[in-house]
Amino acid sequence: MSQNIIQHIYRVNALRDLAGQLGLMPKIHQLQYWQCARLLISHDDLAKQQRYQKAMAFFVEELYGPKDFSQRDADLVRVIPKLAKVLPDKAMNAMNDALSLNALSFDLDMAMAQYLTQHYPDSDIDRDNYAEAYRSVGRSEDRAHQIDIISHLGDQLAEVIKVRGIGMLISLSRRPAKMAGLLALHEFLERGFNAFKAIGDVQSFIHPVLNREKTLMQALFAEDLVLPQDNPLPKVHLEQGLF
């Protein structure tokens, strides 16, 4: 499992380096921000419920957003073998899912950014050029796998929060993590645990998200979809902050 996690990190680092060389990072960041805003609109009813707010923020900011994860990833590569000896298997599986999702999402975002840069070099991202890019890039199997990873991640998180003593373990490790220069990694773990612990029933959050995202994916890939009039995406108005 440790090696899988490291490979996900190496993959996304290689993609980031390539995107930087191609000058795609500004467009990727714009795309990621737009997608985060779209997620919050599509799941507005969940985002407004207090018990789900931390979980929604974690998904948007820690797994999908334009945040710089380089320090967290460097921390992970450095200590993942040691973490594997301390954390339960369910926690390691959840971390593997999270990093796998991050790598696949960045890969797809990069492909979308390339299309948008080529066909809409001077335009901001909107629902119409996003839908066109989504369909043109295709990769429906990867899109379906992206949703499958979220489903499995939800199952693992539901089990992690039940592990006796893991909350205390994470809390007590904050000071040693800070002294060891691993604060970015610790904050990622602590925030994820606290977000889903607050829900209790993780599936009550994950299932609606999965069902809606599957429906949207299927609508975007439908053979009889006519753009822009049949665009299933919501209108997104970007504001200063997502939360």
Rank of each mutant, 00 (worst) to 15 (best):
M1D: 15
N4V: 12
N4G: 06
Q7C: 13
H8P: 03
R11F: 06
V12I: 10
N13V: 02
Q21G: 15
Q21W: 12
L22Q: 14
G23A: 05
G23T: 11
M25C: 10
M25G: 03
P26W: 11
K27W: 03
K27C: 05
H29L: 14
Y33S: 09
W34M: 09
D45W: 03
L46C: 03
K48V: 00
K54Y: 10
A55I: 02
V60H: 02
V60R: 05
E61L: 09
E61M: 10
E62Q: 13
G65Y: 03
P66V: 07
P66R: 07
K67Q: 11
R72N: 06
P81Y: 13
K82C: 11
P88Q: 05
D89N: 15
D89A: 13
A98P: 02
L99F: 11
L99M: 14
D107V: 04
D109R: 02
A111F: 15
T117Y: 07
Y120T: 12
D124K: 08
D126M: 12
Y134N: 01
G138P: 02
R139F: 10
S140R: 14
A144Q: 05
Q146G: 11
Q146V: 05
H152K: 12
L153E: 06
D155H: 04
Q156W: 08
L157N: 00
V160G: 00
V163A: 09
G167P: 10
I170V: 13
S171D: 11
A180Y: 04
L183S: 09
A184I: 00
H186N: 05
E187S: 11
F188K: 01
G192N: 03
F193I: 04
N194L: 14
A195E: 09
G200V: 06
V202P: 00
P208W: 00
E213Y: 08
K214S: 11
E223A: 10
L227G: 01
P228H: 15
Q229D: 08
